[in-house]
Design a binder for these strands. Structure first.
Lengths: 210, 210
DNA sequence: AAATAAAGACCGACTGGTTGGTCTGTTGTA
DNA sequence: TACAACAGACCAACCAGTCGGTCTTTATTT
């Protein structure tokens, strides 16, 4: 495959990450890449297609990782660990992709958007399934509403793109460890929750009273 | 104060929420609002100022709420409860504002950006402080790295704007209850952690071995 | 109270600069 | 010779913002 194509993607990624998709012109991209409009449009049908390609390479990768983690393990607990682990680590590998993914997905043309949405939903479904399995098998707290708990997990991980820096205090692996710890702490049933309930004004709605 | 100004903001909010800041032209805004370019630019210096106003009304509100919650309670646990509660509820009140806030903040002009950043950082600092207090007083697990834990909480809550719908399965109050439960479950030391550690491959780096 | 002045609110045709994309080439190479 | 890879001048569309002007409300003077 062409060398220029990859170079254009890399350059665009850096520019989009800093200035946003709409803050970068095709002219800027080709100048920064040392090529021309002709070069650009030889490899991409449009600026929108470039946006799609960036989205797609990222979500495809994440999906594959999750599927792998899902197959390797059988018990819900290691599954959750593996999925969170690999999911968090993606933010080190694909940070610029991810920024674009979450900031600019609104601007994907309908045809592109549909394809991305399909893969994104499949990933979400996988995460939810693992939690549901754990609840059914009794490993995880049954009283937790699946939807809310699942989105809480996706949220805390996804948000990483807003604050993670390679030269920050903690490595991506350390972050993954802490996140796994946090998630397991609220998923696993813990003894009597007396200490917890003592500080609550009322019993939360989702606790089965029986 | 003028009625038109508010009407413009409301219309813009709906349009930005659906099509993004760059997907909406001033012309569209004034047509949808039944006014004119003149009407628009009489109330706003620029399209960018409108973007700033939306950012500012939201973050100012959140900050005030957090400060109130901070003052009312003295013990860390009710503080955390109150802050999460009010923070989550904001997503019902200000959903479109928040979408714009997180999707388009990249496009704020430097002067505007600085002002927003100041308030946003102050809010973040407050959340972190509450956790730190709880750790010092022994209410919360000391081994958790403040930075990562804090960002996990901010992440799970902030992400709500991506999935919350008023006509969804759960009300915003129910979501707030579950989130409070999740957070307290990973903050509070409770359960001896044997059940948890049994499933870990190794002791996480942040556990003080003492 | 009437007349007049001044200020504020709003209108909409117009513009200057920008931008994604095109098109006609040119170069290298198999 | 044929074709892919790239160059770069060019264009039509679009868009934020302007500006001279109108209408309405408020303030000031007579």
């Amino acid at each position: 495959m062409s060398d220029l194509r990859e170079k254009i993607i890399q350059t665009s990624l850096e520019l989009f990450d800093r200035y946003g998709f709409h803050g970068v012109t095709v002219k800027q991209i080709v100048q920064q890449t040392n090529t021309s409009k002709g070069g650009f449009y030889h490899h991409f049908q449009s600026k929108d297609e470039l946006l799609f390609v960036i989205h797609d390479t990222f979500i495809t990768y994440v999906l594959k990782e999750a599927q792998a983690a899902n197959v390797i393990h059988s018990s819900p607990i290691p599954k959750v660990q593996a999925i969170i682990q690999s999911f968090v680590q993606v933010f080190d590998l694909y940070k610029p992709h991810i920024s674009v993914f979450y900031q600019e997905s609104l601007y994907l043309k309908p045809a592109y958007e549909e394809e991305i949405k399909g893969k994104r939903d499949e990933f979400k479904r996988m995460v939810f399934n693992v939690i549901a399995e754990g609840q059914e098998s009794g490993h995880f707290r049954r009283e937790l509403p699946l939807e809310i708990t699942g989105m809480a997990i996706l949220g805390m991980v996804n948000w990483i793109y807003k604050w993670y820096r390679r030269d920050g205090t903690y490595t991506i692996d350390q972050i993954a460890e802490v996140f796994t710890d946090l998630v397991l702490h609220f998923l696993l049933p813990g003894k009597e929750d007396s200490e917890y309930f003592r500080h609550m004004l009322k019993v939360p709605f989702f606790y089965e009273s029986e």
